[in-house]
Design a protein around this nucleic acid. Sequence first.
DNA 1: TTGTATGCGTTATCAG
DNA 2: CTGATAACGCATACAA
Lengths: 337, 337
Amino acid sequence: MTEQAVETVTADDVAARAGVSRWTVARAFKKDGVISEKARTKVMAAAAELGYVPDLLAASLASDRSNLVALLVDDFDNPHKLVMLERLTRILRAAGYGTLLVNMLGEKDAPEALLTASQRRVDAAVVIGTQFDDGIRRTALGARRVKQLIVFARAGTAPGTISIACDDVAAMTEIARYLMAKGFRRPLFLAGPNTESTRLMRKDTFLKVWEEEARGARPVVIHVPDYSMPLGCEAVVAHLSALPAEGRPDVIVCENDVLALGAIDALRHRLGLSVPADVAVTGFDDVPLAASPAYDLTTYRQPVTEMARALVRVLNDGGSTSADVFLTGRFMERGSA
Amino acid sequence: MTEQAVETVTADDVAARAGVSRWTVARAFKKDGVISEKARTKVMAAAAELGYVPDLLAASLASDRSNLVALLVDDFDNPHKLVMLERLTRILRAAGYGTLLVNMLGEKDAPEALLTASQRRVDAAVVIGTQFDDGIRRTALGARRVKQLIVFARAGTAPGTISIACDDVAAMTEIARYLMAKGFRRPLFLAGPNTESTRLMRKDTFLKVWEEEARGARPVVIHVPDYSMPLGCEAVVAHLSALPAEGRPDVIVCENDVLALGAIDALRHRLGLSVPADVAVTGFDDVPLAASPAYDLTTYRQPVTEMARALVRVLNDGGSTSADVFLTGRFMERGSA
DNA sequence: TTGTATGCGTTATCAG
DNA sequence: CTGATAACGCATACAA
């Protein structure tokens, strides 16, 4: 209404108004500051009247924490990223952290992406990506100011990082056993890039469990260079169309939902097959689309909320945490398998 | 490798190493700083040796700009948000801006979301949302430090904000005329929430063009309270199943892709109809899924890249821009209509 | 072209 | 429990 001058009101102003010192104002605003109740209420009243809000920038400069974390994302093609971003931003914000979203352009961009984050003095850099090599760790923990490097939704291999992820071993074991119980015999495993940098235990676990418990042949594995629906689709078309009908897999186990959705498209629209009658499909993540009637995808839901909460705990521990965190999610039985 | 001490190296250190003053170092680092070439190379060499990187936090505190913009998002259910986030973070980062992602929990959370952004002294707050009332403007431009409020991908109604969006009028006119030319006669318009706060010109434009040029009856409009696939799906089921086959629309024009995808699901999986043979469907946005063979959705692509570039221009203008920006996208003819 | 004071708004630390 | 001093790292204006 009144376009009042945007004079920044500082702690000094509040102090003057409340008749105390600037430092008392600061104490009133930190949750466990040693201060008398009387002084606090007086300060808060003055602050409210003046519309004072602490300046986090100045606070960050003066202290050694910024309450800011960088989220480094290198793959915006996966709708599950949106789920993770929603949870992380909501839960981190509730815990008092701001989130700096950094678009990591590729593996070789990791150092620079980390640098931009460090220039804002983030308390931690959280990598929510699919690929990045070990160089990111050295960059992060080297001369720069990134105190903590956290790998989210992946099991990181690099020492000096801690990872917070879904327990892929338990999850994939559950999927494999479910498929065995359903009578499937010839699974095809559709995996993403076959790199060492960030490891997904899904493929290895599935192969191991299947070989040990199903006593069948080692399942066929195909890799695509990126987690994308079109690539998953094409890979399935290429693989299945070269096969005689008898040799066709009876289920395609996918490393994540995006690949699974692509596989379903391939089966239905390119190969004229029916899901699950001709070939069943399973995914991983439980993206929103998995629940739609069009796909009705049997998958495994990552415990994203719990993972985000775990991240907050790690951040609040201030670097004293060293162990990785693995959380179990939930198998989502639907119609595709 | 060598876990070298994470001593922060400041401009002073570089100055000492280069044998100049601290202020010369600062000049060397700003792109059009008046400085001799000799001094600059000397400074840069010293900086490289020491691994100096300017501290943006301190720079922000000292100057009146932070090169930080807040992205306020209140709807993470729409995959198009992921497209926008990717473009915005990439293009803003290339232009030297950091992006603070803030999860706005709902209309009443807007003031507080804006507050958290302002506490970090963002240069601008960019609202990429579906709903927020006028209060956000007063909060933003009132006592707080948010210099600029920009509405992205919407036409904002509030004065004092500038909006950067797709030219919905041109877009919807094109869609309407395409449908007329194709011979459709009984469109149903599926719209999102019917609020005044942020206006999408899509519905009004479609109705206007259709009435004026198709000389048909005013199309039926149905609203859903949120842009979500399930809601779109249910709305279509409810509406169509109450209709005799003769009264059925021949095309469902949707305010965005998410609703369109839900509509397609409804037609195919709930009503046993075929798309586009029985009922055609159009969307808006061109989310990645629209191109999949499963949906093959005829839609309109928002010029997100151009919009992001326009945002950079507005930011670089430093608040002197006052006019809204409307950019034309591209009609994507596919199989659903 | 380069060097010098001064201030940005807060916190850590210690003295009272 | 409260007040004071000294950073935090840089930018702006101005002087040399």
